[in-house]
Design a protein around this nucleic acid. Structure first.
Length: 153
DNA sequence: GCCAACGTTGGC
DNA sequence: GCCAACGTTGGC
């Protein structure tokens, strides 16, 4: 079992949206490194749901992989933002997964808090310039964050 | 295969 | 809104 961090701009898709849907499609990933991570994700893996480019930036809650990677339908949709003319149904390029809502923190764990914790200084998300939208989280970091910052929230 | 130019991400 | 960092594109 692996742990992940999934970035989303809450204006586009927030943890409240996932909570409402219970199971939501995680689509629109158009970066090869992120895609490769998506294809490694297994059912039951847990992920931090991270809100980026918002008033409150940080980990908003937890989601669980409900369905492993399948071709992202938005790559074939001509009028969609994420349309990719190079992709065909025979040779898809991009993949989506389904995530199930697990938990929303009462207050998100701010990025600044993660950055200020020396124990977390190897996490990808705290590195300057780190843009990867689907990233693996070490089990020790996931557990530590849950114990340290997510007990009473 | 190199690398400059360009577009995008995302924190601040 | 700014801009640093990064990924991608395309000329050579």
């Amino acid at each position: 079992m692996r742990y992940w961090l999934l970035k989303s701009e809450p204006e586009a898709y927030s943890i409240d949206d996932l909570k409402r849907q219970n199971v939501g499609m995680w689509d629109g990933v158009r970066n090869y490194a992120a895609r490769n991570n998506i294809r490694m994700m297994e059912k039951g893996d847990l992920a931090f749901f991270y809100h980026s480019s918002a008033a409150m930036i940080g980990i908003a809650g937890i989601a669980e992989v409900a369905r492993t990677a399948y071709p992202d339908p938005t790559q074939f949709q001509k009028n969609a933002d994420h349309y990719d003319p190079k992709a065909t149904t025979e040779r898809p390029i991009w993949y989506a997964i389904d995530m199930r809502f697990k938990r929303k923190f009462k207050t998100l764990i701010p990025l600044a808090v993660l950055k200020n914790d020396p124990k977390l200084n190897t996490m990808l998300v705290v590195q300057k310039g780190s843009r990867l939208s689907v990233q693996e989280v070490k089990e020790k970091d996931f557990t530590y964050i849950m114990n340290m910052y997510a007990q009473d929230i």
